[in-house]
Amino acid sequence: MREAISVFAGNGVMEEFSSLPKIFRDVVVNEQWERHRNFLLTQIYRDIQRVSGWYSPAAFVASVLDGASQKEIKKFNEQLEDLLQRPVIGEVGEASIDAAIEWDPFLHFLF
């Protein structure tokens, strides 16, 4: 959002010109309304893991990255498969903390 606002320079902060300032303000409210970011990240992990029997992680990645190169799809699929095998949720320990730290940027770049 900051980058989008900065593209318009001074006009990016004027609601008369752009809806970006309102969206930027609402992000904080929406995050609280929809629960905290960590909760949402955890829920995405659980959902992907839960449905992996009938909706494979590879199919999910290919769907999200429709139109991307096969190399890119393969890269994200491998990362997702790796993260799903690691303890992102459950007992807290060094391994789960490391996996959770990787989960956030993985989703950021995937979407």
Score class of each variant (00 low, 15 high):
E3F: 07
V7H: 07
V7I: 15
F8G: 01
A9K: 09
A9R: 07
A9H: 10
G10N: 08
G10V: 10
G10D: 15
N11L: 13
G12D: 10
V13F: 07
V13W: 15
M14W: 10
E16Q: 09
E16R: 09
F17R: 08
S19K: 13
L20C: 00
L20G: 00
L20M: 12
L20I: 01
P21E: 09
K22M: 12
K22S: 11
K22P: 02
I23W: 13
F24M: 09
F24N: 02
R25L: 03
V27G: 03
V28T: 14
V29N: 08
V29W: 11
N30F: 07
N30M: 14
N30Q: 06
E31S: 14
E34P: 02
R35G: 00
H36E: 14
L40Y: 11
L40C: 06
Q43C: 09
I44E: 09
R46Y: 00
R46G: 00
R46K: 15
D47E: 12
D47F: 12
D47K: 11
D47L: 11
D47P: 02
I48Y: 02
Q49Y: 08
Q49F: 14
V51C: 03
G53T: 05
W54G: 05
W54F: 15
Y55M: 11
A58P: 02
A58V: 04
A58G: 09
F60L: 11
F60V: 10
F60T: 09
V61Q: 00
V61P: 00
A62S: 13
A62W: 03
S63T: 15
V64E: 06
L65H: 01
A68S: 09
A68W: 08
S69N: 11
S69E: 10
K71A: 10
E72P: 02
I73D: 02
K74L: 01
K75N: 05
K75P: 01
K75E: 15
E78T: 07
Q79P: 02
L80S: 03
L80R: 05
L83K: 01
L84V: 05
R86K: 14
P87E: 05
I89Y: 06
G90E: 02
E91P: 01
E91L: 03
G93N: 15
G93T: 07
E94S: 11
A95R: 12
S96H: 02
I97S: 07
A99H: 04
A100C: 04
I101N: 07
I101S: 05
W103I: 06
D104F: 08
D104M: 09
F106K: 03
F106Y: 15
H108N: 03
H108Y: 05
F109W: 12
F109K: 11
F109I: 05
F109A: 10
L110W: 05
F111S: 06
